[in-house]
Design a protein around this nucleic acid. Structure first.
Length: 916
RNA sequence: GCCGGGAUGGCGGAACUGGUAGACGCGCCGGAUUCAAAAUCCGGUUCUGGAAACAGAGUGAGAGUUCGAUUCUCUCUCCCGGCACCA
């Protein structure tokens, strides 16, 4: 055994050994030996192959690896695969920038990043690796899409995209900066094009209800999904556009063509119907188009509304603007005429593209009405008389009692909901309905680097699905990119020219590709049978799924996790899996963040400096007071602590850390610095600290091993429990008694640590506190080792006993740390005479007998403030505790002159004396 | 704007079910070792007062419930994630 810890010597060798021996290869279903074993499927969200790993990946995959290794030590058959979410926009951007085809760029990145993952020692079954850009993978995605098509879950409709009028391409939201295309700088326009949709709304109710099954998901994620699906009960009702007035004013034929005079709106508050003072429609609504026909100012307003990108956040934060169409809508109950306005915040994609407006009882309507001097009609009064309603200041949005509502006056909001809905239903002007905020999933992307949508357009037969035997529709990889960013296959007749599968006539292939969320919605299932070329999923899928533990970033809380849940239910309905949900337990890890440093240039633009370029200045207490650039010794501004990113130049490259400290140190630090669900703040000195701990652990084991050798033992001796219990023997010296007491204390600490760490790693996933408790244990071992040395000459039994107790503490420390730092623990495991792999060892068991305590600390409080402490045998009775507490000098002082009113005793914890 | 989350010493964090606030690590201060340094080891370290014992204050701000609140309730401030074409 080496005296010094040398990660550079041990890590590479062990990784080679694990790879050669396929140590972490997962048993297949047909393997009889594994059939009886309990399975555990641990999955970390697969990475996009961007080039190299970042700290977020390291954190994500270390968490998954710790859980996997822990579960394997529990005796389970563990599946932990890894792969690549390989389609996506960055490959196309790189292609334009570097003139490298996306496929080449992607596969090179995969090779690089695979090497980095292996260098971190993750226990993956690499034989199951998948890359979603490979035809063997996406052919099954095309196949599944066609099954959805057959089931009527696929349809085509017009939908809006961000259009760059100069580059003549569709832009992603990310590519629109301040309303302009990121390459061309042109103002983007919203433009409608036909696109394919999946009917996820058919599953809205199930997706909502089954959230209740997911009791091992973070509550916040379930809440976000619930709100995203957004079920609401309301009424669909119809206002009628007053076409007679229209005739008088402009004439319908002129007015941009005919439109349906029935103007449908949805409301969750039919009780406020009598307070409607106007109706608002989306700029794209047919009524708006009609109004624009002979009113140039309206046409111009509609035109302006186009210059906003297709993102809800932008729509919701923009200035609320509107214009009167001049048209009137007839109220379904009062028959009164109210104005129809065009409002830029009404979404054509959401509901019917029109809303009824009740400014008295809806804040947004109120603000709009104030701005454009529209009337405000008060129709709901509060239940109680204390609540102030001042409609000149704000809308009153609570429910209450109806007023100014004719026949409905005096009804509560709830009663009015029913009464008004029934009246509308009777008059066939409305119906009660359930509405979802969730929209159908648009899966068409006008991009190259994605899976082709398997559809052929024929002039005679329309849209025709590609027959199964022609799958996969392969994406050509021999392509050329031009600077506009447009998809090359759209200009590639060899790709899109084909024959209609139905009639054989010349036809055109769909050149759009799938949204990359398609690939990530089912990859977890494909890992169970990644090489099966005959079917998408075989029996293995049901053997392993649902995934027992899924680990990934909180940013996926809604979209990816909702789409996967949808796909799982679809696959269930197709008989491919039998469970309802794909992921049993979910862990959302926080971001990796770091300090930023910058200088503001004359233009106001910030120039960010990397952490390695900057020197931190501290005051005498170590508080950071400033920073300067090493290069010129001039100050730089310390910015906010933000997510590591290229733009903020605050990223730390994991590779250089691995080179410097080894994989175990990096793994240990990322697990120790924060609990997994919180954001992790990067700290170089923290990494040093983690490395120091590993060095200390190594030296401790080395020293112990030397002592064992000196005592003539090759490994730590077994604990002689009888000898350890001999505290009362008459001829024992004080030194002996002292040592025995210390040994028993260490053994207590060992098993307390094991108990806590097992719970922390196995149940709570608070790896930071598990590591902290092992640190405490090794600190105690360190103290005892020193103590034993200074106590000097002791008899041989005692020496053996000391070696045994310390040996147990170290062995248990190694086992607890092995999922976190697998290399160093393996080396020390072998060096202390253990055969085989620590990864295949069983998790140690707590010795309950070692946990028995002679006394417990009991806190004394007077009026809730700590005034002292008692050390008492556990389960001391209340009366005794109270008597002892009242004798305490400090307690006496604080109750002096007061009357004891009450005494509260919490067993084995504290006693609180209430006196005044 | 909407939905979700967070805030505790100089710093990262701990306190799991309402019961000793600050475990563990970093940083800093002092000491040992060393010709010296690195490395390592030992001690101290929430703030204020005090030599100490101890006392007072203290978990983003303000209120409330309770014998007792970092923990529960309400209001507010700031920061972060998502918002359907970044993945």
């Amino acid at each position: 055994m080496e005296e010094q810890y040398r990660p550079d010597l041990i890590e590479a060798a062990l990784q080679q050994q694990w790879s050669d021996q396929k140590t972490f290869k997962c048993d297949t279903v047909s393997d009889k030996s594994s059939a009886a074993k309990e399975t555990f499927y641990c999955l970390s969200m697969f990475p996009y192959p961007s080039g190299k790993l970042h700290m977020g990946h390291v954190r994500n995959y270390t968490i998954g690896d710790v859980i996997s290794r822990y579960q394997a030590m529990q005796g389970k058959a563990v599946l932990q695969p890894m792969g690549w979410d390989a389609f996506g926009l960055p490959a196309e951007n790189a292609a334009i920038k570097n003139q490298v085809p996306p496929a080449e760029w992607t596969y090179q990145n995969i090779d690089d990043m695979r090497g980095q993952l292996q260098r971190l020692g993750f226990a993956y079954d690499w034989d199951r690796e998948i890359a979603t850009c490979h035809p063997d993978y996406y052919r099954w995605e095309q196949w599944l899409f066609l099954r959805l098509y057959e089931k009527g879950l696929v349809y085509r409709k017009e939908a809006e995209v961000n259009w760059d009028p100069i580059d003549q391409t569709v832009l992603a939201n990310e590519q629109v900066i301040d309303g302009r295309g990121w390459r061309s700088g042109a103002l983007v326009e919203r433009r409608k094009i036909p696109q394919w949709f999946l009917k996820i709304t058919d599953y809205a109710e199930q997706l909502l209800n089954d959230l209740d099954q997911l009791d091992e998901w973070p509550e916040q994620v379930r809440t976000m999904q619930r709100n995203w699906i957004g079920r609401s009960e309301g009424v669909n009702l119809t206002f009628t556009v007053d076409t007679e007035a229209l005739d008088g004013e402009a004439g319908e034929a002129e007015a941009g063509g005919a439109f349906d005079p029935a103007l449908a709106v949805f409301t969750t508050r039919p009780d406020t119907l009598m307070g409607v003072t106007y109706v608002a429609v989306a700029p794209q609504h047919p009524v708006a188009t009609a109004a624009a026909a002979n009113h140039p100012e309206i046409a111009e307003f509609i035109e302006q509304c186009k210059n906003i990108k297709v993102a809800e956040a932008d729509l919701a934060t923009m200035e609320k603007l509107g214009i009167d169409t001049g048209f009137k809508a007839i109220h379904p109950i009062t028959q009164q005429r109210v104005p129809i306005w065009i409002a830029n915040f009404v979404l054509i994609t959401y509901g019917s593209g029109a809303v009824m407006s009740v400014p008295a009882h809806d804040q947004r309507d109120w603000e709009f009405a104030k701005k454009y001097q529209l009337p405000i009609q008060h129709v709901i009064a509060p239940h109680d008389t204390e609540t102030d309603v001042d409609l000149t200041q704000a809308a009153f949005t609570d429910k209450g009692v109806l007023i100014n509502s004719g026949a409905f006056d005096g009804l509560t909001s709830q009663e009015a909901f029913t009464a008004i809905a029934e009246q509308l239903e009777a008059a066939q002007q409305g119906e009660r309905t359930t509405h979802y905020r969730l929209r159908d999933w648009g899966v068409s992307r006008q991009r190259y680097w994605g899976a082709p949508i398997p559809i052929i357009y024929c002039d005679h037969c329309g849209a025709v699905p590609v027959p199964d035997d022609q799958l996969p529709v392969e994406l050509p990889t021999e392509i050329e990119f031009d600077a506009s960013g447009g998809s090359p296959i759209k200009k590639m007749p060899s790709f899109y020219k084909t024959q209609c599968p139905t009639c054989g006539a010349d036809a055109t292939r769909e050149t759009d590709t799938f949204d990359t969320f398609m690939e990530s919605s089912w990859y977890y299932a494909r890992y169970t049978c990644p090489r099966n070329d005959d079917v998408m999923l075989d029996d293995s899928a049901d053997h392993w799924t649902p995934v027992d533990q899924y680990v990934g970033g909180i940013e996926h809380a809604v979209l990816h996790l909702l789409y996967s849940r949808f796909f799982h239910k679809v696959m269930r309905d197709l008989g491919m899996v039998s469970s309802d949900e794909p992921f049993k337990r979910l862990l959302c890890q926080g971001m990796v963040v770091a300090e930023t440093f910058y200088r503001e240039e004359a233009s106001g633009k910030k120039h960010f400096y990397g952490p390695q370029e900057v020197e931190i200045e501290r005051d005498a207490k170590g508080k950071i007071i400033g920073a300067k650039l090493i290069a010129d010794q001039q100050p730089v501004t310390i910015g906010a602590i933000e997510k590591m990113s290229k733009s903020k130049n605050n990223g730390v490259d994991p590779q250089s850390l691995i080179d410097q400290y080894g994989a175990d140190t990096v793994r240990l630090f990322t697990m120790f610095a924060a609990p997994p669900d919180q954001s992790l703040e990067w700290s170089d000195s923290g990494v040093d600290g983690a490395h120091r701990f590993l060095k200390r652990l190594w030296r401790l084991v080395y020293k112990h091993q030397q002592q064992c050798k000196a005592a003539g033992e090759t490994t730590a001796p077994a604990i002689n429990r009888e000898a350890l219990e001999q505290t009362g023997s008459n001829n024992a010296s004080t030194n002996t008694l002292k040592t025995l007491k210390a040994l028993k204390a260490l053994r207590l600490k060992t098993h307390e640590t094991l108990k806590k760490a097992s719970d922390d790693i196995g149940r709570r996933y608070t790896f930071n506190t598990a590591i902290a408790s092992v640190m405490e244990l090794t600190n105690a071992v360190s103290k005892l080792t020193e103590q034993a040395q200074t106590d000097g000459a002791t008899d041989q039994t005692l020496e053996t006993l000391t070696l045994a107790v310390i040996g147990e503490a170290l062995r248990i420390s190694l086992l607890i740390l092995s999922p976190i730092a697998p290399h160093i623990t393996q080396s020390l495991w072998s060096a202390t005479g253990h055969e085989g792999l620590i990864a295949k060892a069983s998790w140690p068991e707590v010795d309950e007998k070692a946990l028995v305590k002679a006394s417990v600390a009991l806190v004394l409080q007077v009026n809730g403030k700590r005034r002292g402490q008692l050390s008492l045998p556990p389960e001391t009775d209340k009366a005794t505790i109270e008597a002892l507490a009242l004798e305490d000098d400090n307690v006496k002082r604080h109750i002096d002159g007061k009357t004891v009113r009450k005494v509260i005793v919490v067993p084995n914890k504290l006693i609180n004396i209430v006196a005044n």
